[in-house]
Design a protein around this nucleic acid. Structure first.
Lengths: 187, 187
DNA sequence: GTCTATACACCGATAGAC
DNA sequence: GTCTATCGGTGTATAGAC
């Protein structure tokens, strides 16, 4: 056991990925440590050698998943030195597959309400992530702050509402409506 | 006991109001039947003579609170025969006091994420309420569907995100940005 | 219709063997 | 570092007295 010194790092990463998926799907309260560890291929007892509490995992998972999501959506994975491609971000983020959350979904949208109910530490993390996105998009596009904030609300809010909605047609119309408000007056 | 035949109706209403407040503040999972009944001035045991399950209460409370919120925001309570006042709706809904949720807050915004995680019945209720708002605003303004959907996302999504955010300044900027996107090019 | 008491299940966190 | 076992607390729902 522990053949590799970075075995623990791999386990930690597996837990973080499992947590991101399950938290996005079921939220904080309906996701047990048990579920997460099973999804990661371990048992309950091992958890506390990686994180000191479920709360800490939630916070770490939020930061990790949000950054991964936006990085992945912002730039082509095959062209890592390309800059911020806003059009690509919008279309990836508002793609009809996103609200279905097959592979997890952006926690900024999937967990808005969940996070609003948690303690100040978690909300600070969420706030910091939102500010990071705001500044990054602002620097890339040169738009004023109000315009970028509105864009972020259309993306995050659009996906959050589309996910709550039960009707395929309305969900697609919602996503299209948000896209139309974001892309510069499409042809 | 049971001096008035509508005593039960009054109790039911008290439970519904308490539920709306507590669900909005803490979500479904963190609100116990106990909490709700205490807030309503009764004890646990009496609950199941009014509702068959916590799930059913949630659904009833969602419908009730959403309709009250929007009705209250749409028309001046002192002028009940006035029609749909969209400007009033937007300003009331995006008022800085709304995300603070002192008196409960609109469940369409406060519980988006929460509802996305529940069963189809609840999501259908949410979907129906959203469609009702869509049609009502559309009929009142004559705007096309896409525009109204975008407006609803800016309102509901804006409040949801503003509530998660931990920073007073950013929260006000978020609400202002949404208002600016909704009101016809303010002076 | 409202109360008290309780059955039954679940989960976060810890202890200790290997 | 991962396992099994367990403690302690909580919450939904039901039973039965008044």
């Amino acid at each position: 056991m522990a053949w590799h010194p970075d075995h623990k790092q791999h386990s930690r990463k597996r837990i973080l990925n499992a947590a991101a998926t399950l938290f996005a799907r079921k939220g904080f309260d309906n996701t047990g440590i048990n579920d997460i560890m099973e999804e990661a291929g371990m048992t309950r007892g091992a958890f506390y050698h990686h994180f000191s509490s479920k709360r800490e995992l939630y916070q770490e998972s939020l930061r990790n998943a949000a950054i991964n999501r936006f990085r992945q959506a912002l730039q082509d994975p095959d062209d890592l030195q390309s800059g911020v491609d806003l059009k690509r971000l919008i279309e990836t983020y508002l793609d009809p597959s996103h609200p279905l959350g097959i592979d997890g979904g952006c926690p900024m949208a999937f967990l808005v309400t969940d996070i609003a109910q948690r303690d100040e530490t978690i909300r600070s993390t969420y706030t910091g992530l939102l500010q990071g996105m705001l500044h990054r998009v602002q620097a890339a596009t040169g738009s004023d702050q109000q315009a970028v904030l509105r864009q972020l609300v259309l993306m995050i809010g659009g996906v959050a509402i589309a996910r709550a909605v039960n009707n395929d047609e309305l969900r697609l119309q919602l996503l299209d409506a948000c896209k139309q408000g974001l892309l510069p007056t499409q042809e």
